[in-house]
């Protein structure tokens, strides 16, 4: 069967890589859709407590986050080891919560301002004293929608 005889001496053709960009683009789109931008650099330790009954926070753009926890090792020289508050990129005090909420509110569109939610990301080892203080400040700033950020417990 001469038809199927291999004609020797020919080089093997190079594998076509034309579809490689397509594959990589697919990966890229997957990551673009499923992830969110990292907003701030964490300066406090943040190990969230666990809970079962969680609701997802929708509309990322309407959420402002307040972090509470012990300062990380490189900041302990300046801020001590007691739990502190981090808003945006800096560690600040409870009294600054009001102005933080005000500036966050300024940054939103007018019709969205009363839909703003505060996500409280507090370390599990924090004491309630500081959390209660923050809550009082939030009430004074009339930012009443709050979400206690937790990790979903897998049963």
């Amino acid at each position: 069967m001469a038809k199927f005889k291999k004609d020797g001496g020919k080089e093997t053709p190079a594998i076509s890589t034309a579809s490689l960009p397509d594959i990589v683009f697919m990966l890229l789109f997957f990551f673009m859709v499923s992830t969110t931008m990292r907003e701030v650099e964490l300066k406090v330790s943040n190990k969230l407590p666990q809970a079962v009954q969680v609701t997802k926070l929708e509309k990322k753009s309407l959420v402002s986050t307040i972090y509470v926890g012990k300062p990380k090792a490189q900041f302990q020289k300046n801020f001590g080891t007691e739990p502190v508050i981090q808003m945006n990129d800096q560690i600040s005090s409870v009294s600054a919560v009001g102005s933080f909420i005000a500036s966050e509110r300024e940054a939103r569109k007018e019709e969205d301002r009363n839909k703003m939610t505060v996500s409280l990301k507090a370390d599990a080892a924090t004491k309630m004293g500081i959390v209660t203080d923050i809550k009082q400040e939030l009430r004074k700033a009339s930012a009443l929608k709050i979400s206690y950020s937790v990790r979903k417990e897998v049963k």
């Binding site: 990551f31 969680v54 926070l57 986050t65 009430r139």
Partner: peptide
Amino acid sequence: AFLLLVFFLVTTTMDVDSGIYRKLPP
């Protein structure tokens, strides 16, 4: 495309914000 992919891998996080939703009393 790889460059873009790496950029997104580095600057984004996977975690979805979830929590216990409550309303504070005014």
